[in-house]
Design a binder for these strands. Sequence first.
DNA 1: GTCTATATAAAGATAGAC
DNA 2: GTCTATCTTTATATAGAC
Lengths: 205, 205
Amino acid sequence: MAATPATPKPEPDAPSRREELLRIAARLFAEKGFKNTTVRDIADAAGILSGSLYHHFDSKESMVDEILRSFQDELFAAYDEILASPDDARTKLERAVRLSFDAIHEHGPEVAIFQNDADHLGALERFGYLAERNAQSRAVWLTLLQEGVDTGVLRADLDLTLTYRFIRDTVWVAVRWYRPGGQHAHTEIADQYLTILLDGISAPA
Amino acid sequence: MAATPATPKPEPDAPSRREELLRIAARLFAEKGFKNTTVRDIADAAGILSGSLYHHFDSKESMVDEILRSFQDELFAAYDEILASPDDARTKLERAVRLSFDAIHEHGPEVAIFQNDADHLGALERFGYLAERNAQSRAVWLTLLQEGVDTGVLRADLDLTLTYRFIRDTVWVAVRWYRPGGQHAHTEIADQYLTILLDGISAPA
DNA sequence: GTCTATATAAAGATAGAC
DNA sequence: GTCTATCTTTATATAGAC
């Protein structure tokens, strides 16, 4: 084996240059939208010239691809863990909701990109997995909701398809205004959302 | 007065060419996003060449400006009518929610553009009115919610700022999947949403 | 890993003929 | 009101030097 003196192995905690660039790109994609962010924007924010980005990535699409894939892998692993748990239906629903707010807290840019650009990117073959993940998400939530109805913890008069769509859309929408370190902690927002979702805003009769 | 033989006055119901082009542009902006829609896309859909669009409009920005302004004028006039009505707090809240679903039904493209592109467009001076409308919307909903708490029809333990944000975001989000003539009528979706918002998804104890 | 320089394509917009 | 033709700017991406 010849000596390979160059590029020292990075510490596990020290993000590689590649990861750092992806983090910068994710922030910009989230703020301005994928299409509206230029490779020059990304390069400027990273303190290099646009051409230099192509040493690390094939294309702008490759960047957002890598960002979305790794986020979704992590997210769906967490959903699977909840589904497989022995918790009762209501607890699992609550955990799934809180998982969304945790994701908004820890991976805001990725969530925002997914919310804003997934529809449009999904039209490209390369992003076909987004539709698969969408179907998987639907299956997760409908399973949880059906289990809730079957065990009597949820009302039986709900249209589960509509309920699923509302929950799917509303657990993510706080990414539009939530900022870490702001007035409301993400756990507090999750509490308030669960209160409304489970019991409504009406005063008890 | 000299005779003016050209351009006959259009019937009030016959949309002018200008209005027809705006309708086409609105649909495309809603489907693909403002930035991602080219003037060539719009011209193609209208069956003309891109240069011809500039006979009708200054720029692509002018088009989306006109689309958003006229929609918001109509929407906020309707909010004002609800605020000024003698209905009780709960009825006014229900009317405001149903107004959103009516707007999604009748002005889907305009709602979608506002949801998807208003943040980004709002950064331009020309679209400063979007921030004003945003403040106005906040005032409308907070007024309705406060009146609901004061008259005892809403729970007193809600954080009204968070509740406002959730309602604001969630009454519009159905524009992502609702299609006129689809499986669920918009009135039916409004009913289901109001059920969840007012009373929650939990089974009664 | 970044820079210089540049190729190539796409997009917004304009001028004047019809 | 639309077309032909074209200008200008912006954007993605590449090649090779350092």
